[in-house]
Amino acid sequence: MMHSDPPFDTRAHYMALMARKRLYGGIVLAIFVALMVSGFMLTDDRNAGGFWDGLPQIFDFPAAVLADTIPKLDRLPGHFLRYFPSLMETINIAAVSTLLGAGLAMLLSLLSTRGLARWPRLIPLFRRIMDIMRAIPEIVVALVLIFVLGGGPVPAMIAIAFHTAGALGKLFSEVNENADLKPVEGLQSVGGTWFQRMWMGVVPQVSPNYFSYALLRFEINIRASAILGFVGAGGIGYDLRNAMAWGQGRFDEAAAIFILLFLTIVVFDQLSSHVRNAMIAKKGSH
């Protein structure tokens, strides 16, 4: 019976399949559009000022900043100099927290990679630890630490390092999984301790990838440390909040900070992508 089906049935079947696929696609699209629209209306409703009311005013603040800055352009270099130390603090927070976080991530990732772990049974534990560290937003740790340690760069540093350890740990352990185990076995055969096996057998293989991920993270951490400054953890973000509080007529300082922050982010963005590209090119040439 089956064999006597007319051949054009294939085509009908294909068309039916396509129609169903299109229908599913259409339903998903409709749900997505409905979610976007209703979400938009909901947030519009909850916002202090509505979207359509605010849209014409969107350039008011930039215009006010420009109006305050242009007559005082000659003061800008002075402002740059004045806020440079806090910019350095922001960058330092990012750098130290990337260093510390990467160090911790290295340890955690080695402890949670199959085949390399010191205690294979504890792999799930270390993975969960990294998941939780990654899930906690920096601001949570920072605000709690500000309460205990007082304002300043240290709470921000710890908070960002904490999150970085979780985020990098996951990426590092993916890198570790591709590491060649032969050097590790070689070191084991001559009686190397776990630490020696990792330090001399694994780390040299994976360090270029570690470095490139850490560099990417450094860039993200500069942004994070600026934001944490805004909630009271020191650095340029804190100055920005104060400068904003001066209000209309004195926005030139805020403008100086905007420019500094913008330039910093762009410079480090370019720098890190440059270094990473150079590393990839170097690796390719070998």
């Binding site: 916002n47 202090a48 000022g49 509505g50 979207f51 605010g54 849209l55 005013q57 969107i58 008011d60 603040f61 930039p62 942004r223 600026a226 934001i227 805004f230 973000g237 920005l240 904003m244 905007f258 922050l261 913008f262 982010i265």
Partner: peptide, 14 residues
């Protein structure tokens, strides 16, 4: 950065 956008936009949209 997101921080600056947030500040600029909250001036317009509250």
């Amino acid at each position: 950065d997101g921080l600056i956008w947030t500040i600029v936009l909250s001036r317009a949209f509250g």
